[in-house]
Design a protein around this nucleic acid. Structure first.
Length: 939
RNA sequence: GGCCGAGUGGCGGAAUUGGCAGACGCACAGGAUUUAAAAUCCUGUGUCCAUUACGGGCGUGCGGGUUCAAAUCCCGCCUCGGCUACCA
């Protein structure tokens, strides 16, 4: 039996785990057929970014969960697709490339090798034939192809679907204006389009930074100043799909929390757009009548400031207006005497990131432009301010400010002494000071009844909204509008290590861009990354691909010279469709064969961390819907069921506070007081909290922290596998608690699970023998009635718990099985074999080994999952509780199927109950068969 | 500030529909085995009172409520964690 020939009586994962991994590899045990045979199951893990640090213990948590489901369902006869790959584009590899001046592909491949080794070491049953990496040229060829689909699509708002560009209706006046106007018109509709977007440009580092790399207007690395500058960027029109992305959530089997996160992120709001006239006051009525005739224009003219509001009912209370510092009207509206102050204010705002602006939200700042607009409701002039609490990227970048009914406007108005006019009466039921609100001394942002609102006075908020929207519409001064917090997706990065855009910019004879864009022909894909000499940033806000050799950068097609797009796609791109490629990873004719796509999609179970709850899932859903609309996939949603695994924290740490001279203290943290780690042995529990053993007046803090390099509490799976084995790691991660919960790591816990596997081994293998032989207690006897009951109960629990992904309790039931049979001198082979099959999804290496020891030549991966007989799991007699007034007073043993009358009778005749009941009057008897009998009594 | 989640022994956690709180594991203690230790096996282990045995009181973050019965349902708080952050 022992292939290496030497004696191995003890459970030795270091030997059997590599053995079975090699077996699965050589026998292609988990190779999945191109098309499912029978019922299909597509189970997907969120593929990892292969960082230089290798796997951490958080990865195997979700991966083990899906692996258990896959192994379990294979045994239940399903055709399972379970692939793995790598999301390998990304910043760390590029940073490494800059530092060492080596191509990022080299470090990426090295990291992928490490990840693959670690994943194989854990015994996951992936079909490795399907491995893909987003950085594979054969892969990103199709990422580029999908980009071209996006570029060639527009969103038909009426039909609510994406359609090819050649189906876009071109208005006659546009058609007549010539080719260039038609081209520009088309570009306005494409799902992929170019626009000026603000980026964080850091001149000192010579690079553009992500929002999270900027703090207080300085770069995270090096503290250099960062400016927000507009740059021509690729955008994806995800907002067009906002309503579908929101509505289709209803059909998905996801946790409500995650759905809500997505809904909030999309952030749909309804309200109105209103144009405020900004010309001279005596021209106002002329403008009004003009608007009555022309109607509300699609794009605002120069003589108006267009705003978006969700509360058009508060129009009469708009006492000032605010535009964002980046608003295109800033320059034009500012009067000469305010120019200097405005310029200074806008420069300061430009130096701040969105995040910094919002972090100091309490203190509103702003500057007066000197200009006024006319409130269309009452014709009175209102001052126009510039303030960074208004964001250029939301709505129209301008607001009407109603300080009486918006807390932000209220703060601002207080600070700058702007009139506050209440126009909503909160009513009697209002908790706060109703009179203070009406007097404009307190802000109220709820709904109520209109006051001081001309003809609308007396209307409820909702009636008012409907009426004024209609009026604005007829007067051509506004219209109903919908807005989203979701922005169009900024889809380009000034980076080297990403997918190149398959886009060419036409150049004129002097080498300047003509504005004409030419997509790379599908047959010319892929556009590979060029070799470049160095990866260091320039001092211009230009991507590293600007340094590419001319042969790459300046292709000539049909005598026309082009410059390639030198931005690259963001890391999200590759993960937007990888699940489709897994279905058909080698196809060089199309991104996925329609037949295979139809057979395998949608994904039946998708497991990953909650950190991707919003962006990745939203982006992938968006791409999928475009592909669906264009007829390339057959499902509207890619991820039918989603489960988020919880975070694994480091081992619990105890800390106490100490002063500089070394005395313990409970004082708050301040200069001279430090937090020091305490050993578990020096800690006692005192009441609700922990305290120091040597001085129990000193509080000890007990908490598990996120694993991080800086804290030094990171657990490396390599170490765990070396010391305890992969099967122990797998089971421990499942046994810690529910999959979705956040839970702290514990080394002694792993050791405990290893003890269980040791016992399982010794239950079947004679560990005192010289060679591997089956334990003498294992025989061909038939099971006793009790053994049969335990076996079937175990099968039942493990089956339902595994199917319900309650892995922690499934493991507990298997532990009980082992505890029971280890005590038994007679362990029928039938029971042992069924147990091994139950264990196999959880501890596949050990199970395979035991299966072989029990005399089987083939892998157990496709053995039928054990069946249970429910009638065998039941007891003939059970013990139930007898309560008096809800308190447990006795326990009685009764036939399992005893009815109410019988139960009450037995309970009444119980020795103890006779005694109690003799002194009491029974008012009521509650009998729950199989549970309890409760006597309600009075003296 | 907003949203979401969670509070059960020394610790991780279990507990169908409201129906015997603490499954399983860790840790700890005692015992067996051993020259000894490790390993293994057995026993005990919420807490307080009582201990002659049977026992009894309390107990699922806190305070109320509904109910024959509440970890579970309702109302009001507290604490911790995660996400998010001026979205007009």
């Amino acid at each position: 039996m022992n292939q290496t020939g030497h004696c191995m009586p003890r459970y030795n994962p270091a030997e059997i785990e590599p053995k079975w991994q090699a077996y699965w590899d050589q026998n292609e045990t988990f190779k999945t057929p191109d098309l499912p045979v029978g019922e299909k199951l597509y189970v997907l893990d969120m593929f990892p970014y292969p960082s230089g640090d290798g796997l951490h213990v958080g990865h195997p948590e979700g991966y083990t969960a899906t692996d258990i489901v896959c192994r379990f369902e294979r045994m239940r006869g399903k055709s399972v697709l379970h692939p793995m790959g790598f999301d390998a584009f990304g910043l760390p590899a590029e940073e490494h490339a800059i530092k060492t001046n080596t191509p990022p592909r080299i470090s990426t491949e090295k990291n992928v090798t490490t990840f693959r080794r670690q994943l194989k070491m854990l015994g996951f049953s992936y079909d490795w034939h399907r491995e893909i990496s987003t950085t594979d040229v054969d892969y990103f060829r199709w990422t580029q192809w999908i980009f071209l689909v996006l570029y060639d699509s527009w969103f038909d708002a009426e039909q609510q679907r994406g359609r090819p560009m050649d189906e876009l209706p071109i208005p006659a006046d546009v058609q007549d204006a010539g080719e260039q106007v038609v081209r520009e018109y088309k570009d306005e509709y494409r799902l992929a389009y170019l626009a000026n977007a603000l980026v964080n440009w850091c001149p000192a580092l010579g690079t553009v930074l992500a929002n999270e790399e900027v703090r207080d207007g300085l770069s995270d690395r090096g503290d250099h100043p960062v400016h927000r500058i507009p740059l021509r960027q690729w955008m994806l029109r995800i907002t067009a799909y906002a309503d579908r992305l929101e509505n289709d959530l209803a059909s998905l089997d996801w946790a409500d929390g995650i759905k809500k996160l997505q809904r909030d992120w999309i952030g749909r709001s309804t309200g109105a757009e209103v144009d405020f006239f900004v010309g001279p006051q005596d021209a106002f009525s002329a403008w009004q009548s003009k608007r009555c005739e022309s109607g509300y224009p699609r794009n605002p003219s120069d003589d108006v400031l267009r705003i978006y509001t969700t509360r058009p009912d508060t129009l009469y209370g708009a006492t000032y207006m605010v535009i964002a510092p980046e608003h295109p009207f800033v320059e034009r509206l500012t009067t000469p005497e305010h120019r200097k102050a405005v310029r200074e204010y806008c420069d300061r705002a430009a130096a701040k990131s969105d995040r910094d602006r919002t972090e100091n939200a309490k203190d509103k700042t702003g500057v007066f432009t000197g200009a006024f607009a006319i409130n269309p409701a009452n014709g009175s002039p209102v001052p126009i301010y510039i303030a960074d609490y208004v964001l250029i990227s939301y709505g129209t970048g301008a607001i009407m400010a109603v300080p009486a009914h918006d807390t932000r406007d209220f703060e601002f108005a207080k600070k700058y002494d702007i009139p506050i006019v209440a126009v909503v009466d909160p009513g009697d039921s209002f908790d706060g000071e109703r009179q203070a609100v009406i007097a404009g001394e307190e802000c109220f942002s709820g709904e109520g009844t209109a006051i001081q609102s001309g003809e609308y006075t007396g209307l409820s908020t909702s009636e008012f909204k409907v009426k004024i929207a209609a009026t604005l519409q007829t007067d051509g001064q506004g219209r109903e509008a919908v807005n989203y917090k979701l922005r169009d997706w900024l889809f380009s990065r000034q980076r080297f290590w990403g997918e190149p855009f398959p886009i060419l910019h036409e150049l004129d004879e002097s080498g300047e861009p003509t504005g004409v864009i030419r997509p790379v022909a599908v047959e010319d894909l892929p556009v590979n990354l060029p070799e470049i000499k160095d990866y260091k940033p320039h001092d211009r806000p230009e991507p590293p691909l600007g340094k590419a050799p001319d042969e790459w950068l300046y292709p000539v097609i049909d005598g026309v010279r082009y410059r390639r797009e030198i931005n690259t796609m963001p890391q999200w791109a590759g993960s937007c469709w990888y699940f489709l490629r897994f279905i058909d990873p080698k196809n060089d004719q199309c991104f996925v064969s329609p037949e295979k796509e139809k057979a395998w999609m949608p994904i039946d179970l998708y497991v990953g961390g909650a950190e991707h709850a919003v962006l990745h899932l939203l982006y992938a859903r968006f791409w999928h819907k475009v592909l669906y609309d264009r007829g390339h996939v057959t499902t509207q949603e890619p991820f039918q069921r989603l489960v988020n695994q919880g975070m694994i924290l480091g081992d619990v740490e105890f800390t106490a506070r100490r002063t500089a001279d070394g005395t313990w203290t409970n004082d708050a943290l301040q200069d001279g007081i430090e937090v020091v780690p305490i050993s578990v042995n020096d800690v006692i529990k005192r009441g609700e909290t922990f305290a120091l053993k040597e001085d129990d007046s000193i509080k000890v803090e007990s908490r598990a922290h996120k694993m991080s390099k800086s804290r030094g509490n990171v657990v490396n799976p390599d170490d765990i596998v070396r010391e305890y084995g992969a099967d122990s790691l797998r089971i421990y991660e499942m046994f810690m608690g529910p999959l979705e919960a956040t839970k702290p790591w514990s080394m002694t816990g792993v050791n405990g699970v290893r003890g269980f596997l040791d016992r399982a081994w010794r239950m079947i293998v004679d560990h005192s023998a010289e060679t591997i032989v089956i334990h003498e207690a294992v025989n061909d006897d038939s099971l006793t009635a009790e053994q049969l009951k335990i076996l079937h109960r175990t099968i039942q629990s493990v089956t339902t718990d595994t199917a319900g992904m309650r892995f922690n309790t499934a493991v507990a039931r298997m532990m009980e099985f082992v505890n029971f049979f280890t005590k038994s001198k007679c362990r029928p082979r039938e029971a042992m074999e069924k147990f091994v099959l139950l264990l196999s999804p959880y501890a596949p290496h050990l199970a395979e080994e035991l299966w072989q020891i029990l005399g089987h030549a083939e892998t157990l991966a496709y053995e039928p999952w054990p069946e249970f007989d429910e009638s065998l799991t039941r007891d003939d007699s059970i013990e139930i509780a007898v309560q008096v007034n809800g308190k447990l007073r006795a326990k009685i043993t009764v036939p399992a199927d005893a009815d109410r009358a019988v139960l009450e009778d037995i309970a009444r005749n119980d020795e103890k109950l006779v005694e109690i009941l003799s002194q009491m009057n029974v008012v009521k008897v509650v009998v729950v068969p199989g549970r309890l009998v409760n006597f309600v009594v009075r003296p």
